[in-house]
Nucleic acid binder design. Structure first.
Length: 871
DNA sequence: CTTGGATATATCC
DNA sequence: TGGATATAT
């Protein structure tokens, strides 16, 4: 089940994966801001234990960073720097900081991320790697068939290392359409011949990766409200490295060709794994500071100077190669909690030690119960870690023992036994209460999880077990590495055409956005400018982001900047400030690859028109003229845009005809953009029965689209399940602690040491015997139950019918069973259909799938072939 | 009186 | 395997 060693991909795949690292921006702060919306926009930090000097700061939002507030500051210092800062405390439960709020929020995010790939590796509470190679491959194919076009607005908020803005990068890539040979020669000199196919596709695939990253982040924002940054590269190390380069709420691509230049000035310690002692050793041993300088040594020399394994690894990293696989892992392998007892708080007595072990064990108990419900697994090992003061020295130890029951008492007792058994003199001589060695730190953690037997009598446990298994199987199957295939190509112009078509659309949208802003700006011009200012004045003092200070000037996204210029000048016009001069086309546009390509096309076409047979692709080139003209129109209309309202109306009409939602809020409507925008004129289309979306009449696309619906549905189901379960276990807990029914609005009173009868855990699935009062308190149904409070009826949250209380557990099981059954069925279908793409002898069900694969393999040509061609 | 507290993972011996 | 340690957030 839980694989022990890391997995690696083959050397031949070093450039053909596309890996995303998604990193939540000042996550704990965002969680607090979401929970307490009145604090949004203010400088805010999260502290724990605010008693001493205002508590220790563990997260700082960007408004507060601007004021110089950083981590490892005390709350008081922050107040001094920024008097209006909001300090949120980590909740204190059982006299210790309780971070479960953030763990839950992290899981909420991960649930969204999971929809985009099975290959999701949660790296911490707020970070995850996604291997999106499969999706990228699909889209490369879609580009080739013309069913997908890269859309400029999807690259909003993207950056590429080594480029001022994303437009420059796209421009560079596009230029290679015109003159493939120049770059190709460079490729051939710089890379091994075997890698050339992947190298040629690299930029395009990363760009597609960036589009997906945009969708991922938009989905996270739309569904959770949280913002994040992302890195897009060919491996984990690189994705992680660049994810922090543009924060917050931005994403960064690391183009293959930019790696050497980046590494030449990259401090060794910026690389994950080199940030600590080992990194220092490396620098000292090699006499270097920058990663690129590692390559002054051969791999052999590095192996000799360090050790074999490190030498190999370091050499590869310095070459930008990292073969570590994105290992699917959603749930952690171990669960633990700990607490420091510094200085006077040292634990010196047995009673005190038992107390704290009890508290830790109690928290463990809660978390393990929850984990059991979600994952149907039980820990088989526990570890107790402790630091003792022995003659003034801090001595740390950890001992483990097998675990059969993980209830609070067992954990606490076993922990104490382990400490006793591993302490030479446990109690002070002559005392039965005083510890010989004060304890400065205590930790309990459990691991070695095993799936619980499904001999549980409860229906729920049985289904949950199956569902969990399914999930694990589908996730832990070895991943077959996608092959970067050389695909035959279709006409270059067809693709450029669709790119332009999309660009034009975007452009219209931007104008609408602008127009709207003008209207608003007449009311609150100052605010608008202030906001823009806020957005563009990005502080460079981002330390949690590993910020690289290589580029001194704050960068702006191409489109953002372009839009801003338009807005600026228009605003100036509107409020009668003539100093700004006439509204001119921003240089970015004139210099953009669109414009240049357009220019080239015009000239090419002029020449091409003379000889008659050159218009063999008649449709394409005449369309090109049309598009060029339209582009011209738009470009010039930018200049005469003053009477915005009339053209605005016109644009709105056009927009309502065939356009997606305005670019400004496309993120709020993820679903539309999760589907590729399609050229309905190039591909035969059908309608999706579920959402009516236009889809290419192509089985792969249909399957993908259905998966999209399925994923949404599944996610919904899972969330419902979890909510239900949490509700039930909470009800259980309240029931067991009894007495007071907390008001639903009041903060949940920290359950003071819910003294449960030992052994309760083992029967977690015991049916809850809820009272109506409890149920009401937790759920607040719209209508009261049919009769008075003594009535044995409750409202079923699922079907909104009243059910006898005693029957409710069964009733809920019924719903659950139905849901899970549905889920299993769907998983079945999905697992089979995706598995079959690779397998040789598919069951009959996958026939259509197979056909489509064959069809597309014999398919048409594409401009993307540029990236794969050899001479 | 604590120079970051609480977690988690990986690796070396 | 277990225990200590390193790394990271």
């Amino acid at each position: 089940m839980s694989n022990s060693t890391r997995a690696y991909v083959g050397m031949q795949n070093k450039y053909d994966r596309v890996v995303l690292l998604v990193d939540m921006d000042c996550f704990f702060c965002q969680v607090e801001e979401k929970q307490q919306p009145q604090h949004r926009g203010k400088p805010l930090a999260v502290v724990q234990y605010n008693a001493w000097r205002g508590g220790g700061i563990i997260a700082v939002n960007y408004a507060a960073r601007d004021k110089g507030v950083t981590r490892h500051m005390r709350g008081d210092e922050a107040k001094a720097l920024c008097p209006d800062i909001v300090l949120c405390q980590v909740p204190n439960i059982r006299e210790k900081a309780d971070t479960s709020k953030y763990r839950d929020a992290g899981k909420e995010v991960a649930n969204v991320l999971q929809r985009f790939t099975q290959l999701l590796e949660r790296a911490s509470v707020d970070e995850a790697y996604l291997d999106i190679t499969e999706t990228v491959n699909q889209r490369v194919q879609q580009l080739e068939t013309g069913s997908l076009a890269l859309k400029p607005e999807e690259l909003v908020n993207s950056y590429a290392v080594g480029y001022e803005n994303i437009g420059d990068y796209v421009n560079k890539i596009t230029k290679r359409f015109a003159n493939p040979y120049v770059d190709d020669e460079r490729f051939m000199l710089a890379y091994d011949a075997n890698d050339l196919p992947a190298v040629r596709q690299s930029d395009l695939r990363l760009l597609i990766g960036a589009c997906i990253a945009g969708e991922v982040r938009a989905a996270v924002k739309a569904e959770t409200g949280y913002e994040c940054s992302a890195g897009i590269a060919h491996n984990k190390i690189l994705a992680k490295l660049v994810a922090g380069m543009n924060k917050p709420n931005k994403q960064t691509i690391l183009p293959l060709a930019e790696i050497p230049a980046l590494f030449d000035q990259l401090p060794v310690g910026k690389i994950k794994g080199l940030g600590g002692k080992f990194g220092e050793t490396v620098c000292e041993t090699l006499g270097i500071k920058f990663l690129g300088h590692v390559l002054k040594y051969t791999e052999k020399e590095l192996q000799r100077k360090l050790d074999e394994k490190s030498g190999t690894w370091l050499h590869q990293i310095a070459c930008g190669i990292d073969l570590e696989a994105v290992t699917p892992r959603f749930y952690s392998k171990s669960i633990g909690c700990c607490k420091k007892f510094p200085g006077r708080n040292n634990i010196t007595g047995l009673k005190s030690l038992q107390h704290w072990l009890g508290e830790l064990a109690s928290e463990m108990n809660d978390r393990l119960e929850k984990d059991f419900i979600e994952n149907n697994r039980k820990a088989k090992q526990m570890v107790v870690q402790f630091v003792q003061d022995i003659g003034g020295e801090e001595v740390s130890s950890s001992r483990s023992s097998p675990l059969n029951h993980c209830d609070q008492d067992t954990l606490a007792r076993q922990a104490l036994e382990l400490i006793k058994a591993n302490t030479k003199t446990f109690l002070r001589a002559g005392s039965d209460a005083a510890l010989n060695n004060a304890v400065k730190f205590l930790g309990i953690s459990v691991g070695k999880f095993e799936t619980a037997s499904n001999t549980q009598n409860s229906l729920q446990a049985m289904f949950a077990n199956q569902a969990a298994k399914k999930r694990r199987i589908s996730v832990e199957e070895p991943v077959e590495k996608p092959i970067v295939e050389q695909k035959p190509k279709q006409s270059e112009e067809a693709k450029m055409k669709s790119f332009f078509a999309n660009y034009l659309q975007t452009h219209k949208d931007e104008k609408i956005v602008k127009d709207n802003l003008i209207v608003e700006s007449s009311r609150r011009a100052d605010e608008t400018e202030a906001e823009i200012e806020l957005q563009t004045n990005k502080s460079e003092t981002d330390e949690d982001a590993n910020a690289l200070k290589l580029a001194p000037s704050p960068k702006k996204s191409f489109f953002e900047e372009y839009k801003r210029k338009l807005i600026d000048s228009s605003v100036a016009q509107e409020i009668g400030d003539d100093k700004a001069g006439p509204v001119a086309t921003p240089p970015e546009f004139k210099e953009s690859f669109f414009a240049k390509y357009l220019q080239e096309q015009k000239e090419v076409n002029k020449i091409a028109e003379l000889p008659n047979e050159s218009s063999t692709e008649g449709d394409d080139s005449s369309d090109m003229h049309g598009l060029a003209a339209e582009l011209d129109d738009i470009e010039s209309s930018c200049i005469v845009e003053q009477e915005a309202s009339t053209s605005k109306r016109k644009l709105e009409q056009e927009n309502s005809m065939d356009a997606p939602a305005p670019a400004s809020d496309y993120r709020s409507n993820y679903a539309e953009y999760a589907q590729p925008e399609l050229r309905t004129d190039l591909v035969k289309m059908v309608n999706c029965k579920e959402c009516g979306a236009q889809l290419p009449d192509d089985v792969t696309a249909l399957q993908t689209h259905r998966d999209h619906h399925f994923a949404q549905q599944l996610n919904q189901q899972l969330r419902e399940e979890q909510r239900e379960e949490r509700q039930r276990s909470r009800l259980n807990a309240t029931l067991n602690t009894t007495v007071s029914v907390p008001s639903p609005t009041a903060k949940p009173a920290p359950l003071k040491k819910a003294k449960k009868a030992a052994g309760t855990v083992a029967t977690t699935s015991a049916k809850p015997i809820n009272t109506i009062a409890k149920f009401l308190a937790a759920k607040q149904p719209l209508e009261p139950p049919p009769s008075c409070s003594s009535s044995p009826f409750k409202l079923c949250p699922d079907c909104k019918t009243y059910v006898k209380s005693v029957d409710m557990p069964e009733h809920l099981d019924f719903h659950m069973a139905r849901k899970l059954q549905r889920e299993l069925n769907q998983l079945e279908v999905r697992t089979i259909s995706t598995a079959n793409i690779k397998k040789t002898s598919p069951p009959p069900r996958a026939k259509r799938q197979l056909n489509s694969t064959l069809n597309s393999a014999t398919g048409n040509k594409s401009i993307t072939q540029f990236f794969t061609q050899s001479n």
